[in-house]
Computed example of a mutant assay.
Amino acid sequence: MEVAARTSSPQSLGSLELQCPPLPHTLLEALELMHQPEGLQMDRVIRMVENDPGVTTRVLKVVNSAYYGQRGQITSARRAVLVLGSVSVTGLVMSMGLHEMRHDLDASTAGPFLHLVRHSIATAFLARHMLAHEEGPDVSLKDRPGDAYTAGLLHDFGKLILLYNHPAEAAHLYLEAQKGKICASNVLAKERERFGYDHVETGVYLTRRMKFPAVLTAAIAWHHSDEVAGDLDPETRHLVYLVQAANRAAAALGFSSNCPVPCEQCAADPIWSRLVEERVVAHPDVETLQADLQAVQPALTEYIDLIT
């Protein structure tokens, strides 16, 4: 099934006046760098960090945190980028840019927006983390941790658009979902009921209009699907599976976009078997993969707290 087949709506999205909030310069620059055909260039990443004092401060805070466990204080942006790596720093800058978008949203959306951003960063972190293991056989996405992070970060982009265009209604809906008054599986239906389109359709429409990389649009289009994305090319299909898994794991580890999800429910999802059987990750079995994600929870929490 193509992405286009997953974007039908009761009313034409093209006829609507949906607007995207202004995207921070740092977010756009980081997104462009992450998806350069020639790959990330270290010098450009260093310049991006050095040119923004706020970014420099946050990057230094992260590199000197307990999570990275550096011996001695790192005080230069260049050294921080060399230690963290260009992909990690560019992902960090994108996450910071997403968080900065709170200034352009209605004050009533502050709570749901922060909840959404923390979930999005958690999904991005976990998607990249699952590709970080060097042992084991080659996996299809081992050289694409940047794609994994970006797709995880932007998978719920449509919710941000709905909060911007329908602040009162969307904030109320997402607060109800966080409290468990709306079942997670019913959120899409409630969005269509209230707005005529859901956050998946909205995210696909806007990212296409803004000419985001097609692989990101695919991750948005499929992230709530229980179907096997068989008609996508193998690497895109595997990236979709990675984002689906990271999305579910984030919810089970305390960073749900809706109400909390029990670990047992998350663990029973068939997505984990797909990841292992199709060698999307290097973990030898589902149990090892799930144990690895459980073990990274403290680092994940610290990472998110440093950004938000």
Rank of each mutant, 00 (worst) to 15 (best):
E193Q: 15
G196E: 07
G54L: 13
D104S: 15
R6C: 04
M96G: 00
M96V: 08
T90K: 10
H223S: 07
A252E: 10
V83N: 04
R274W: 14
C20V: 15
E50K: 07
A246M: 06
A107M: 08
M130A: 07
S8W: 00
I304C: 13
A219M: 08
E169N: 13
E135I: 04
D43R: 10
S108D: 06
H155C: 12
A30D: 06
V59D: 02
V296F: 12
H224T: 10
V187T: 01
H35W: 15
A219T: 12
H283E: 10
T202N: 00
G203W: 09
K190R: 13
V89C: 07
V204W: 03
A251V: 05
S8A: 10
A110W: 11
N51D: 15
R274A: 01
H133M: 07
E227Q: 09
P21S: 05
G152N: 09
P262H: 07
Q36G: 03
T202E: 02
P24I: 05
V276T: 02
V286H: 04
L116S: 06
L289G: 01
A252L: 12
Q265Y: 12
V228Y: 09
Y67D: 08
A268L: 12
G203E: 03
G91F: 15
P137A: 05
H103M: 06
E17T: 07
D147A: 13
R128T: 12
K179F: 00
H133K: 11
A295I: 09
L239Y: 07
L23Y: 14
E134V: 11
L300H: 08
L173C: 09
Q294A: 04
G97P: 15
E302Y: 09
D292V: 03
G111S: 14
T301L: 06
T301Q: 14
C20A: 14
V280S: 01
K179N: 09
L13Q: 04
Y241P: 08
V280K: 01
E201L: 02
T123P: 00
V139W: 04
G14Y: 15
A107C: 07
F195N: 01
L242R: 02
H224P: 00
E227T: 14
T202I: 05
G85V: 02
T57W: 04
S273R: 14
M94W: 15
L92K: 01
D231Y: 01
S185E: 13
R237Q: 12
G158Y: 02
Q294W: 14
R44M: 11
A218I: 12
I182W: 00
M96S: 01
A295W: 14
T308W: 11
V45H: 08
L232R: 06
